[in-house]
Design a protein around this nucleic acid. Structure first.
Lengths: 148, 148
DNA sequence: ATGCGACCTCAACCAAGCTTGAGGTCAAGA
DNA sequence: TCTTGACCTCAAGCTTGGTTGAGGTCGCAT
């Protein structure tokens, strides 16, 4: 079986059919059509859906995924090298997220461990603020989110 | 300075004033009022906001945070022990998330590294599916999300 | 040829998580 | 006293990421 119907893609990816339609409308995936106007997906759609799911899990918006996918060829299945290039980018993204989560976990532990209820000094409660001198709160995470 | 105005809380936490109002309406934080009806926050609000931000970052919905906060005392500043108890729960949650992110990163790397474009066999593309036998896709992550 | 499940489009609706705006009050300095 | 910025409430609006439903078609088996 070379091409997948929506139902098959949905079952295999764990993504609802309505979501597949939605992703297609948003330009994250694409499909060929049968003479009878039914969608047929190349197998690489499953990889795209996997990436989409990963992204969702780490809080990266679909629009950022779309931008990343825009670096892949539109009308032909990406080569291994093309996927690898994109994947390297994502791996960095994931590494960053993991590092930040670890940092937060550490800070939370420390914060509770040391009993520092004087929150003005707590790095977790108050990341990057340094007692209000800097003015407008932490944006590092958002920069990661937009990543461009 | 024992109590914080909304503006101070917003600046220190990096959360918009409108979001503070929103969180209060949703029951995640609370405030005392001055004779003139202005909000005054106890300092533990900063810790709550920090926890809220952590939760948001790892994709935990506000409602779950509210439920967690519901285990803390309502009308008095939680003790260190009370925070520690809650924090332990969150630490587990964060550990789980980190573990899952690491797994995903590993799977993504492997998947590209081995060039397995035969996605039917790819664990990342197709987690828990085993070629469609199980029927309705992966739910493990959602269970983590609801965590009750 | 007819029934059935899987598929199609399009528009409406939903929930979370906020922001924005209107219309008004508070509090402190010049 | 007056002005200015910070604050108040309430309702409406916005974005993201979808789901639901109506009304109709496809395509395969009987």
């Amino acid at each position: 079986m070379q091409e997948l119907t929506v139902g098959e893609a949905a079952r295999r990816s764990g993504v609802a059919i309505s979501a597949l339609h939605f992703y297609e409308k948003k330009g994250l995936i694409s499909s060929l059509r049968t003479p009878g106007n039914q969608r047929r997906y190349a197998r690489d759609v499953l990889r795209r859906l996997a990436v989409i799911r990963v992204a969702q899990r780490v809080g990266i918006p679909l629009e950022a995924v779309r931008r990343a996918f825009a670096t892949l060829p539109q009308e032909r299945t990406p080569t291994r090298a093309e996927w690898a290039r994109m994947s390297a980018l994502w791996r960095e993204e994931l590494d960053t997220r993991i590092a930040q989560l670890n940092l937060l976990r550490h800070q939370l532990t420390e914060c509770i461990g040391c009993g520092c209820l004087s929150l003005q000094r707590c790095r977790l409660a108050n990341p990057g603020d340094v007692l209000g001198e800097s003015g407008d709160g932490p944006r590092a995470w958002d920069e990661v989110n937009s990543h461009e």
